[in-house]
Design a protein around this nucleic acid. Structure first.
Lengths: 341, 341
DNA sequence: TTGAAAGCGTTACCAG
DNA sequence: CTGGTAACGCTTTCAA
């Protein structure tokens, strides 16, 4: 089962390897015509022979020679996270459609791992990288940029990074919308729980929350609690117990995991929503429709986030300047905010 | 920012490129010694220079020459599916640890896409493939095998495929355990809802269900309903309405999506578990702990599934014979089966 | 223990 | 429009 090379095709078709290379790389324009300086007849013959012989381009060779590999890398913090799993799928789909194959590597929210992942994929000559940067990941990303590998930041911004593409959610709007919805219901004591991750998406959501509180002159009531991924369950329980005593009426939860944790704690403490505590959660999950009371939540346009990041990255690979795009969140109403005070 | 090659390192270290190549490929044995025919001093110097110059191996060149790429491909049916997302993460982790970078491509439960994904990754000279085969995917997998690319089947078996590694769940045991648990509670009218996907995992789970029903002489009550991914919501509602009229006492749901759908329908119809209907679900999800009543469910050893598949695949890449391994499921008790009749 | 040199399959360059 | 040929950076004989 010897591998068929471009040379075999050339010999069989009675042309030079150059011709074959031209034909194999030619993209069809809208008329279905190959846009390359090759006689249409010849091209057709080459294509036919290649087909018959079962020729497959050896990307390693092409990559070695041309520096392009037709691969991109996607580096989320954790692929098992529902949000990134959904996006990754869209990214893969779109990339495949554009002729790219995609590498995946998780950073696990860890700068060292991110650096190691970037090292690995750049050693494989990826043409571009889509990354959700974790705290401290800036340096690793800069190294990729130095090596002239285009980078698109997904979901999280790093303002000090120049020359990168960006596909972000309007996180401030998400925070603002959620908070306003709660305030519109006549609730006044609205608080928030967040992580100490130091990533832009969380701080922007917080900023939206704060601004909404300020706009309605409830800034005195604004309070943001912080926890960490590992300790969330315990911390949240303490936060909620305390909140109930202080008469807090609602919480805005800026991530899915926090939303799930809060629901879990509320269930444990036999607290009902919205009577005891109104809730606005984040991201999509079956939970929001299956919980005792359905839950109001922010949804991100996953498909658009994924597709746009691929489009922008491929644009950059082809020499276009980096683009930034900020997408709007949506809010899905549920019973957890169905209250009027 | 020219790329540092092996030649630069050689020149700088005052040795030949051969030496550098030897050193860069040498694996350290347990003593931390490099197992290559190179003077220890020289090796150390080479390593130091490489470090200083920031040398990174160009995998494209290495791959072209050696035929090995240090990449593997993972092709689940859908990466956004929670089960595969969890596994993928473990696979990536383990592969990275072993020095492999991983390609991802979804088959979308579609044989053509699977073939196209396999084509794409083999063109990139992947050293091996981990795949969850969809119906009709056999031919595509066989092509990979013909091209001498080692393949590990994950989650789903294809019995007619020779020479592949396998990492499967003991699906029959899962079906049996779930059913027995329900029967042990004194329930007799236990039914099952499944998909018409034609994949081994589902048929094995069904077989386990049937055997358990037979063992207890309730085979007359055994009934399996079928639906498809797209129509599940409507079908399940009809199935459950009908089941309630017929006095069905329990359902075994062999996938997460079916479990979620059933819970959703039950909520809609104001049916309680376990009073109206006892339930055993599948796979992990926050839903099972957050639903009004907690839900008994089967959990698969994700980490082990992921790690084993990488280990077996890399073994095969190194020339070991294909291994098969069948892992045991666990059952987590919840309120949805907390009943005695 | 070391080094020279021959490719691996493509693409890029230059000539016709 | 077409073809010859030199790289790309590495691994792999083979010889010293």
């Amino acid at each position: 089962m010897k591998r068929i090379t471009i040379r075999d095709v050339a010999r069989e078709a009675g042309v030079s390897v150059t011709l074959v290379s031209f034909v194999m790389n030619a993209k069809r324009d809208k008329d279905g015509k190959l846009d390359c300086p090759v006689n249409a007849e010849t091209a057709k013959r080459v294509l036919k022979v290649a087909q018959e012989l079962g020729y497959k381009r050896n990307f390693a060779a092409a990559s070695l020679r041309s520096g392009k590999s037709n691969t991109i890398a996607v580096i989320p913090n954790d692929i098992s996270n529902k949000f990134f799993a959904g996006i990754s799928r869209c990214i893969e789909e779109m990339a495949h459609k554009k002729g790219y194959t995609v590498f995946f590597a998780s950073s696990e929210e860890n700068a060292e791992q991110l650096a190691s992942a970037i090292d690995a994929v750049t050693a494989h000559n990826v043409d571009g990288i889509i990354v959700a940067p974790c705290t401290g990941g800036e340096e690793a990303i800069r190294k990729a940029l130095d090596a002239k590998v285009p980078v698109v930041l997904l979901d999280r911004d790093v303002e000090t990074l120049q020359g990168v593409g960006k596909v972000l959610l309007d996180d401030e709007a998400a925070g603002r919308m959620s908070t306003q919805l709660l305030l519109d219901k006549g609730l006044q004591k609205v608080e928030m729980i967040s992580y100490t991750l130091g990533i832009s998406s969380l701080s922007e959501r917080e900023s939206g929350y704060r601004k909404a509180m300020m706009d309605r002159d409830f800034y005195g009531n604004a309070k943001v609690h912080y926890t960490t991924y590992g300790k969330a369950e315990a911390d949240v329980e303490a936060i909620i117990r305390d909140a109930m005593e202080r008469g807090v009426e609602a919480f805005f939860l800026p991530t899915y995991s926090l939303s799930a944790t809060v629901l879990s704690v509320m269930k444990k403490l036999h607290l009902r929503t919205p009577e005891d505590l109104a809730i606005v959660g984040f991201d999509e999950s079956d939970i929001y429709s299956l919980y005792t009371t359905t839950v109001t939540h922010i949804v991100q346009p996953l498909r658009e986030l994924g597709e746009k990041s691929v489009e922008i990255l491929i644009g950059m690979i082809q020499g276009n300047p980096p683009e930034s795009i900020i997408l709007k969140p949506e809010i899905i109403y549920g019973g957890s905010t169905d209250i009027n005070k």
